[in-house]
Amino acid sequence: MAADTPTAAEDMSTVARQGLVDVEHQPGAKKPDPIVVADKVVRKFGGLTAVDVEHLEIQRGVITALIGPNGAGKTTFFNVLTGFDRPDDGKWSFGGKDIQGLSAYQVARLGMVRTFQLTKVLSRLSVIENMLLGATGQSGESIWQAMLRPLWGQQERDNTERADALLKRFQLDAKREDFAGSLSGGQRKLLEVARSLMVEPELVMLDEPMAGVNPALKQSLLGHVKSLREDGMTVFFVEHDMDVVRDISDWVIVMAQGRIISEGPPEAVMSDQRVIDAYLGAHHDAALSVEDEDAILAAAREEIEAAEEQESHG
């Protein structure tokens, strides 16, 4: 998407990125033009505090990564911000509007759209149907107008045109009529991102967009994420792959044990001693067997999360 003459949106994103230069490398740092501001967000499961975020701002028009070791509360924080989970306490705003307490669908309609760690394509719907579902404000989605095609036919044609353009951009146009369930893991990720763009979001929140994507597709997906920024959207994403984080993010936020422990540009964050400690844990000088155990536990926890996703799905 590298164009010779920068568009207005690209200009804006450059300005937004320059705005980050003066921002402190501290947890909860103030940003010049925040799109999301969260305060004192707490989510507990039984006795365990999964999320405890004191203050967080996300800069508009840039790509912000959220990283942290397993079980740091990244996905839970995502869920809370997008209305998929209820916090025990806290308030947060999107584009200056307080949105705590809103349902997930209301949050999405405001322009804050997310994807999921375990890709949620609608298996027994075709790729184009998946896309069309993303379009907002469809009059044909009202029960009173649904049976009368003339009332929504034109809008449907417009949406289809837009969906086809997006499919082409994400190289899914060949799969247009296939069931989404027949796509490969990487194609599903692409479809999910493309579908979220049908909502015409201001902020796209991607939960581990690169997980389970083969290296060939990874590059193209990276390109697509960057292109979102060029189009003037804000991207906030959870990722484990440090190469990806270093490659595309303008700003990195690190979570551990529910708290934000560090913020800054990728290079600064990755050399931060707090981050290294958090990743290696308190055990990093202990015997090997303990590390083994940690590895097993981490693997198990991932499986659990996968199973839970599956359960809430089935």
Partner: peptide, 15 residues
């Protein structure tokens, strides 16, 4: 049909 497949996905699209 989307809800049948995955209601959270549909919710995330603003329905």
């Amino acid at each position: 049909k989307g809800i049948r497949e995955d209601e959270d996905a549909v919710r995330s699209l603003g329905k």
